[in-house]
Design a protein around this nucleic acid. Sequence first.
DNA 1: TTAAACTTTCAGTAATTATTGAAAGTTTAT
DNA 2: ATAAACTTTCAATAATTACTGAAAGTTTAA
Lengths: 167, 167
Amino acid sequence: MEYQEAKEKFISTWGSLGTLWGINKAMAQIQSLLFISTKALSMEEIMEELKISRGNTSMNLRQLMDWGIVTKELIPGERKEYFTTEKDVQELARHIAKQRSRREIKPVIKILKEVSSIKDDGTEKTKELIKQTKALHDLAETADSMMNKIVNQEQTWITKSLMKLIK
Amino acid sequence: MEYQEAKEKFISTWGSLGTLWGINKAMAQIQSLLFISTKALSMEEIMEELKISRGNTSMNLRQLMDWGIVTKELIPGERKEYFTTEKDVQELARHIAKQRSRREIKPVIKILKEVSSIKDDGTEKTKELIKQTKALHDLAETADSMMNKIVNQEQTWITKSLMKLIK
DNA sequence: TTAAACTTTCAGTAATTATTGAAAGTTTAT
DNA sequence: ATAAACTTTCAATAATTACTGAAAGTTTAA
């Protein structure tokens, strides 16, 4: 497999993985293009490379910046804006995990908390609702907190060794 | 908040969380309805409760069964089929993690492996592609394996203690 | 200022994905 | 065999989501 083929394969695979996880194709592809680029790219270059419109590029770049994984880079003397993505996979994972936690997981945990806190009227169905949403709440909290801890690398030597063990 | 409101809130929240993660609404809602139900439900009852068509119900139930999180239950003497979901959240998480790993993560890891194995022609861009996809490959493998280990509870006393630490 | 070089916005459209409902299929009882 | 009770399939349609492109907006240089 040659460079060009490999590059295209990577970008398109990453794009479809994105859609499978609720991230849109263009967004995932822009990010992956930047991820393997040796330099910051202009909007023009991104449009050209991915064959997408100016508007689409602009909007998705904005979203990527909102997520904190792409940043504008102003090249002195240049009028155009250039973009780069976080190149360190660990950092990248940290940003994504943090954002998805904040935007999606935390709000759901909150609702699970509310739902599982309704007053027990003694009926079987109410008991079941409380029991199951409570279990889900606990699971979600544990998973969320673990994910954050792991990705935040709040790792001492001991947790690192533990990681190796479970891995 | 009363039972009915709490129930509706739970089901609709779960449904929208689903869509956010690439799972369709009906599928998520059927699963959540079963999850808090005290008994197995027939197709009729699910349709009625969620106000969705017979076809939709049938197709999504099938998908849920393919994922291994819903099972048919045949009640003796009854002609209709009844459905239940896995009630244990741990088991549920295990099933989902296992399936997503198999269907989505593993194939992507495979492609990352391929892409990162192209021959190094010495150019900077090829080196970058190899380096970055390799990093992603390693991250994906670690994350996938950790997730599986965690949900599979292949936990000895030592991994359990470690879990507590990182948690 | 003005105008060139660029970016953003957004209404319209296209593409994708989900849903319906009725016909076809299956199973069970008689 | 027949028919009733049920489930599945799938073409048509609806709903959602993504994308385009041109107009409006912004910034910089002279």
